[in-house]
Write a protein that binds this DNA or RNA. Structure first.
Length: 778
DNA sequence: GGCCGGGGCATTTTT
DNA sequence: TGCCCCGGCC
């Protein structure tokens, strides 16, 4: 058997290039694999794990951590195909959260949590924080739940407990400055309430793992000896909590291999710290560094352009990513007068390239900085009958109807789960309104008890409700207790069916005959089907009666929105650049390259933030295999206003030799570009360095560029032109978007003045004169 | 309990 | 502008 495996792995090893092979075969001792974009990172990780197994390491002694379920699944599948499913399934491979929730379930009693602790998702967390803020009668407009959540989350990721938070001068000062001095108390209350509910949020899974290892040396020792080899994917995205877990587990045997690309670190807002990868070699002295520098994905032009961009960042690990693919086409920079025209240009270009190169729609992706940008492209694509698929909506498990059902399941497994209780205590409606719920919650926190216990024994806690309400509460309690009893004998699948029927959910959903109602019914069916499949798989794996708690333990971390079934459809992909990380497309449009949009206005004046935005742009460009387009608009409708935009500084960060720039905005650069290629005429690295130096004088702030300023003035003038104020019915106008039209009526005054205009090709429109961009023809 | 309308808000979001 | 959330109303 093992000889057979040996043969297979060796064969695979021959497919690797020199540095890939070296990284795979260096197994003992710390190593850092810097994997440039498209350099076969996943290959190296999978072969390395296969190689370890082949060398005789038991798969269960290998811990492999990823950031997404998808990445873990794909890697596991690939390893299965090399070493076989029997061995591969023994690997500890999964996301940080899933692996450590598994460990926590086994060990959590020393932490004071029940084995079947609930995992609160972001919505649960936010809801609980809202409850706490309300209970304290704080103003939700000052203590915005999202902001409070972010601060608590950041604290947890930095392993700062509520006590440590309250003692931390900097944090307290910054809260005072933000006019939220009570965050420390909200954090403490939130922390206690989670524990009381037997719940951990996503961040807790990492925080409590650290606490577990810190306070229980024997437990740490157990896992240290167990996991003899540790591999971490996407190390540039780890936060402090994750970094420390890895450090603790690996510091003795030091068989740790981390893989990542500092140039693709784009999640600092989630607590990721690029320093983890930049300083890894300091934490593990004598660490061996491998650099995967050959890009197999993109054309030389795309790789060179991306390199020239990322060179502008100061904080990075030196590397020379190169491609031996064809030179390819220059990156084409397109601009439109408005966001609307930008959409139109992209849609046109897709049609054009598709006809010319016979590419399918699914070879195209439109990548943007913010979700709000998608609309305009949807419109443009729809007009041209181009099929598209947009990523980034609500995932299946975040839908209300699914969360409601899951909440019943959660109560069956852990009735103290306060968030689940809140969701379903009056769903379907059973006459337990907000007033009663608030009484229950207040009484509970007064007695330092879970809400469930108050409902179970209202007299003991002197719950102030009348007889009618008391009986309704009792009925609810008995419903849940009945489910809990059944859960002792029924499988997850059978119990789920029982719950949706007896709770009245089925009756409630199926009386709704609307489109949304039907979709909810389908989603419910889908969920039940999923549970049935789950039970089947578990039974095949030898679990006799897979219960709801087994299902919940897995499903609460499955927020993946990978609908694999639809992947093959021939549609253009629309997504944020963040969502596109790790993916590749033959043809990529990176859109909205404007100051204050990309780089985001939020990162202004913060060098670290600007560098991250630049990395984001790097990620975007390196998604392209063959053609890459960059677009921007000169004006954009945002937040209810039309804004004048200047092209992003990032466009000028790319060596112009790799760009086809539009003449109007980049006239001087275009000229320079022509001169340079006439002089050099070669594409050697040294030449490109010199070009960068020569180009320095052009690196001046946008404000100083006369050609940008000119654009500003034209449109500004247009907005305040007095003649527009004197617009009358009967006037003919020329509108930037809608073309020629006739004014039918004027209404309103001052800034609210509106005109009704009949356009030749767009029909009747209401224009708010404050925003409308048009000129009067007659 | 559900519907409507005003007010506030408006990056990115692997788990 | 458009979405979401809340409060007021039926």
């Amino acid at each position: 058997m093992s000889n057979f495996i040996f043969g297979v792995v060796s064969e695979y090893l021959n497919q690797l290039n020199g540095s890939q092979k070296a990284a795979v075969c260096y197994t003992d001792g710390p190593s850092l694999v810097i994997a440039g974009a498209g350099s076969g990172k996943t290959r190296v990780l999978t072969y390395k794990i296969a190689y370890l197994i082949e060398k005789g390491i038991h798969p269960s002694a290998i811990l492999a951590l990823t950031f997404t379920n998808k990445a873990a699944r794909e890697m596991k599948d690939r390893i299965s195909s090399i070493v076989g499913h029997e061995l591969a399934k023994r690997l500890w491979m999964g996301t940080f959260h899933s692996i450590f929730s598994r460990i926590l379930r086994a060990e959590c009693e020393v932490l004071g949590f029940p084995r079947d602790f609930t995992i609160y998702d972001a919505a649960d967390t936010k809801s609980l924080l809202k409850t706490i803020i309300k209970e304290r009668q704080l103003d939700e407009k000052v203590y915005k739940p999202n902001v409070v959540y972010a601060r608590i989350s950041n604290a947890k990721n930095a392993l700062i407990t509520p006590q440590a938070y309250a003692a931390n001068k900097d944090l307290i000062e910054s809260d005072m400055y933000a006019k939220m001095p009570l965050i420390k108390e909200i954090y403490q209350t939130y922390f206690n309430r989670c524990k009381q509910a037997g719940a951990m949020d996503f961040d807790d899974l990492l925080l409590y793992t650290n606490i577990l290892f810190r306070d229980n040396p024997s437990v740490l020792e157990k896992y240290r000896t167990h996991f003899q080899y540790i591999l971490v994917d996407e190390y540039q995205d780890t936060n402090f909590a994750q970094h420390l877990i890895v450090q603790r587990l690996a510091e003795q045997h030091r068989n740790i291999c981390v893989v990542g690309d500092d140039a693709q670190s784009i999640y600092s807002f989630r607590g990721a710290n690029i320093d983890n990868i930049l300083t890894f070699k300091n934490n593990f002295p004598h660490c061996k560094i491998f650099k995967l520098e050959q890009n197999y994905r993109s054309t030389q032009t795309i790789v060179d352009a991306a390199n020239s961009l990322i060179q502008k960042n100061s904080r990075q690990i030196e590397k020379k990513v190169f491609s031996e693919n064809e030179v390819g086409h220059k990156i084409e920079v397109l601009n439109g007068y408005s966001d609307y025209e930008e959409g139109y240009l992209v849609a046109n270009k897709i049609s054009e390239v598709r006809m010319r190169d016979h590419d399918g729609f699914n070879s195209f992706a439109i990548l943007y900085r913010t979700n709000a940008q998608s609309r305009i492209f949807e419109e443009a694509l729809r007009k041209r009958n181009i099929p598209y698929r947009i990523y980034g909506g609500l995932s299946f498990y975040q839908r209300k109807e699914i969360k409601d059902v899951i909440s019943y399941f959660r109560l069956c497994v852990n009735p103290t789960d306060e968030e689940a209780l809140k969701r379903v205590i009056n769903y379907p409606t059973r006459g337990i309104g907000d007033t009663t719920l608030n009484k229950v919650l207040t009484t509970a926190s007064l007695h330092n008890e879970s809400a469930w216990n108050v409902i179970c024994d209202p007299l003991k806690y002197a719950l102030p409700v009348n007889a009618g309400t008391a009986s309704k509460l009792k009925a609810f309690k008995e419903l849940i207790v009945g489910f809990i009893e059944e859960s002792k004998v029924l499988s997850a699948s059978d119990l789920a069916t029982l719950v949706v029927k007896q709770s009245g959910i089925v009756a409630d959903l199926f009386q709704d005959r609307s489109v949304e109602g039907t979709s909810k019914q389908e989603n419910l069916q889908e969920l039940l089907k999923g549970i049935a499949e789950f039970c089947e798989i578990k039974r095949e794996e030898g679990v006799e009666n897979p219960g709801l708690s087994d299902f919940l333990a897995e499903v609460s971390l499955l927020t993946d929105q990978d609908n694999t079934s639809e992947d093959r459809e021939d549609k253009v992909t629309l997504m944020t650049i963040h969502a596109a990380k790790g993916l590749e497309f033959r043809n990529v449009f990176v859109v909205g390259l404007e100051e204050d949009l990309f780089p985001s206005g939020m990162s202004k004046g913060n060098d670290r933030a600007i560098e991250e935005e630049r990395r984001l742009f790097y990620v975007a460009i390196t998604r392209a295999e063959r053609l890459c387009f960059i677009t921007y608009a000169k004006s954009r409708f945002r937040n209810g206003q039309s804004n004048i935009c200047s092209p992003s500084r990032f466009i000028r960060d790319i060596d112009p030799r790799y760009l086809n720039l539009p003449a109007d905005d980049f006239g001087s650069l275009g000229m320079q570009k022509a001169r340079e290629s006439a002089v050099s005429g070669s594409s050697q690295q040294k030449q490109s360095r010199r070009t960068l130096v020569d180009r320095q004088p052009l690196e001046v702030p946008v404000e100083h560029k006369p050609n940008f300023k000119k654009v500003d003035q034209t449109v500004d003038n247009k907005l305040i032109t007095p003649e527009i104020k004197g617009l009358r019915p009967g006037n003919r106008i020329m509108h930037e978007r809608f073309g020629e039209g006739r004014v039918l009526a004027i209404a309103g005054e001052g800034t609210n003045m509106k005109a009704t205009v009949e356009f030749q090709s767009f029909g009747q429109k209401q224009l708010l004169l404050k925003f409308a961009k048009f000129t009067i023809v007659e």
